[in-house]
Design a protein around this nucleic acid. Structure first.
Length: 289
DNA sequence: CACTTGACCTGTCCGC
DNA sequence: TGCGGACAGGTCAAGT
């Protein structure tokens, strides 16, 4: 579930909470996937190094260390990265928090800082991961990603050209393709397509340049609104302090099947497109763009 | 090659 | 109440 807005919120929180702190220990509690076997010596490589910066690219989180290494985190569907300072263990966390005392049974990795505060990586479904890379390996990791949708330097023409590379597939599959545009997932794909009045099953080749250009604008608007609302929390997602996001109460199609369309009052339907549950207004999102 | 489907996991919900 | 199965969705390997 964490898509671009959720990862961006976590990044902003971590930037404020952990930059400058020195790592004293990193523990992997379970799941070799969270810390791959080839990185068994990860502890010696991060111990004693300071957090230099926290960045985001697509749905990836980068924690750059003073040692010349960077921890890269992917939250996949149910990942959480939650920081707890000295005085917030156990009960007594903020009342809008979704997580209780930590570690809990979904905790996979604990990073302890020299000042005693800790960073918890939780992941109920174990799809997410944390890996340590040398700084000079990072370019390779992100080499296949498309442009950031919120980057002002992304021209409409480039977005259209990239979408056209997937002209034979559905517009929803193209939007979800991280090499076309980076950071859009299932929730914001549905929301953006509703806003642009494009049916998710529409083939890219059937859509005019004008409609595709408009789609990029709607992707930007949706992502910006989602960031403003702290992201979407369905079951698991929380920010770096354990707080939920509120975007879903502003969503216009996602999880609104059976309810009236906010634009034309027709009933929102749930269908399957690109192998995903997909929410659409069959009346005002026409099949042909 | 272009595109689609299944696997990876676990918690939850629904029907019998 | 218990149990099997479907479902949730990001990504990549495998299949068509």
């Amino acid at each position: 579930m964490p898509e671009l807005p959720e990862v961006e919120i976590v990044k902003r929180g971590l930037e404020r909470l952990i930059v400058g702190r020195v790592i004293s220990d990193i523990q992997c509690l379970d799941s070799p996937k969270s810390l791959p076997v080839r990185q068994r010596d990860i502890e010696t490589r991060v111990q004693g190094s300071a957090v230099r910066s926290v960045r985001r690219r697509a749905k990836l989180l980068f924690i750059a260390l003073s040692s010349g290494y960077t921890l890269i985190i992917h939250l996949k569907m149910t990942g959480q990265v939650v920081y707890r300072g000295d005085h917030s263990f156990g009960a007594g966390h903020p009342n809008d928090s979704l997580v209780g005392s930590l570690p809990d049974r979904s905790t996979r990795v604990i990073i302890t800082f020299r000042d005693g505060s800790r960073l918890f990586f939780n992941d109920q479904r174990k799809f997410g991961w944390i890996k340590l890379y040398r700084d000079d390996e990072i370019a390779q990791v992100i080499s296949r990603l498309g442009p950031e949708p919120l980057d002002d330097s992304l021209a409409q023409a480039e977005f259209i050209a990239r979408m056209r590379r997937r002209s034979g597939t559905t517009v929803k599959a193209a939007l979800l393709d991280q090499s076309v545009i980076a950071g859009v997932g299932n929730i914001y794909a549905d929301e953006s397509l509703w806003a642009a009045q494009i049916h998710p099953r529409c083939k890219v080749r059937e859509i005019t340049d004008e409609k595709l250009g408009n789609l990029l604008n709607e992707v930007k608007h949706v992502l910006e609104l989602a960031i403003e609302k702290g992201g979407s929390t369905d079951k698991n997602y929380v920010d770096a302090e354990g707080r939920r996001g509120s975007y879903l109460s502003f969503a216009r199609v996602f999880r609104r099947e059976g309810q009236p369309c906010m634009r034309c009052s027709a009933m929102i339907m749930k269908i399957r497109v690109a192998g995903r549950g997909t929410h659409v207004c069959p009346s005002c999102q026409r099949a042909i763009g």
